[in-house]
């Protein structure tokens, strides 16, 4: 069988795959193919949209289901409801940028439970590495047109008011690129962080006015992930490694981070 025949066979399976009517080996075949074929991903998405339309007119679900869901969430609640405020860093506005970044980073380490973040004398080294990694990542990055999220990133990067942050860490080669627009819309758009095993996820935290707020979970192999934050008072962005689903408060050490100068 030729490559073309293989491709045609897989295309033919997309309809039955969308209907969950394929056998297990065929499902596996399609899933492997979908990882590398944008055309087929689009077709599958279209089939699923059609099938969703077929299910569009239904009676409301009973309230008791929501009650059970809410009960499960309450049972999962991991401790105090609110994010613990960071210890204020006094005199922040009078600090030179590097000292200020070190101050916030030290406060972050208290909340995130790590000792990772940082000494002021490491910042210069970090800045040098950031520049090198930014160059490396930019070279690796390609933002193809077609996918709406990719298009959104392209538009965001063209926005003169956008802020691009490169998240890095001492002693690791992984990095993550994030763009944040003036309205607070942001995208993780490039990552060289290692893929995490199933059951773990990367989680993004924003440091805003000295407080650490979850900005979303990114999955175990982040590609393009949108998020939204309050852009006023944004001081830094931090990635931690968490259990799948993320946590309300992290006790993990930062994987990579960025602080505004």
């Amino acid at each position: 069988m030729t490559q073309h025949d293989d491709y045609t066979d897989i295309e033919e399976l997309l309809g039955v795959y969308a209907l969950d009517a394929a056998d297990a080996p065929e499902r596996h075949l399609v899933e492997q193919h979908l990882l590398v074929c944008e055309v087929c991903r689009v077709e599958l998405s279209q089939h699923r949209t059609v099938l969703a339309a077929l299910s569009a007119d239904m009676e409301p679900a009973p309230d008791r289901i929501w009650a059970r869901i809410a009960g499960t969430l309450d049972a999962q609640q991991p401790g105090p409801a609110n994010i613990i405020p960071l210890k204020r860093v006094s005199g922040i506005t009078g600090f030179k940028p590097l000292h200020w970044a070190a101050g916030v980073a030290a406060a972050m380490a208290v909340v995130l439970g790590g000792a990772v973040f940082t000494q002021a004398n490491q910042i210069n080294d970090l800045n040098i590495r950031v520049a090198a990694q930014e160059q490396e990542i930019t070279a690796l990055a390609s933002v193809p047109a077609g996918n709406p999220l990719e298009q959104a990133v392209t538009v965001a990067l063209d926005d003169p008011g956008a802020q691009v942050a490169t998240l890095t860490a001492e002693g690791t080669s992984g990095a993550m690129l994030i763009v944040v627009l003036p309205d607070g819309t942001g995208y993780v758009y490039q990552s060289t962080l290692e893929q995490l095993p199933d059951g773990l996820t990367y989680q993004l935290w924003a440091v805003i006015d000295d407080r650490v707020i979850s900005a979303g979970v990114l999955g175990n192999r982040p590609n393009i992930v949108p998020f939204h934050i309050d852009p006023e008072g944004l001081q830094g962005l931090v990635i931690t490694r968490e259990v799948s689903g993320g946590v309300a408060q992290s006790e993990a050490e930062p994987v990579v981070s960025w602080f505004s100068a």
Partner: peptide, 16 residues
């Protein structure tokens, strides 16, 4: 709730 990152808005609606 547990795996919101599995949803990809570029691949279709939340309903689908």
């Amino acid at each position: 709730w547990n795996d919101p990152e599995k949803f990809d808005a570029g691949r279709g609606s939340l309903r689908s």
